[in-house]
Amino acid sequence: MNFIEAASDHYNYWIAVIVMMIGLYGVIAKRNIVKQAISLGLFQTGIFLLYISMAVVFTPDGKMGEAPVKHSERLAADVLSVAGPVYDNPLPHVLMLTAIVVSVSILAVALAIIVNIKRCYGTVEEDEILDIEAQGLLDGPDTKSNREKAGALV
């Protein structure tokens, strides 16, 4: 199998990997914390694609499997019989549903924290935040005057 064939046959994996890497790059390289949080979401989306890709089950004649939906006309016994239709593996989908919820929650928590950071530091740029911390202006509770002190720096 030559390279092009390998690449095109597994294009879904390539997409997953590319999306993942874009996300990971963003997490590492972006100095804006909102962008970092969004990149994190992108990274996780890449992982979802990978999982979904692995759910495909091929029939012996090379076709993709059916969606694993229980039709009312089929009996339970039919589902288990060898002659029955080939279903795609539903498990990765289910897992990814959970993972999506987790990913959304992470984004939500991250954004909630970022909103507070913006309020306390007056910025969402990591360099400026580090600057403010390095100058030791934050050794105190979150009061209005402290906030203004930090804000005045920006």
Partner: peptide, 19 residues
């Protein structure tokens, strides 16, 4: 739970941003 949590998240972000 999912529905209400999403609404809460939306509330939280908009509220804090405007405060």
């Amino acid at each position: 739970t999912v529905c209400t949590v999403m609404i809460t998240v939306y509330n939280m972000i908009t509220e804090e941003a405007e405060a």
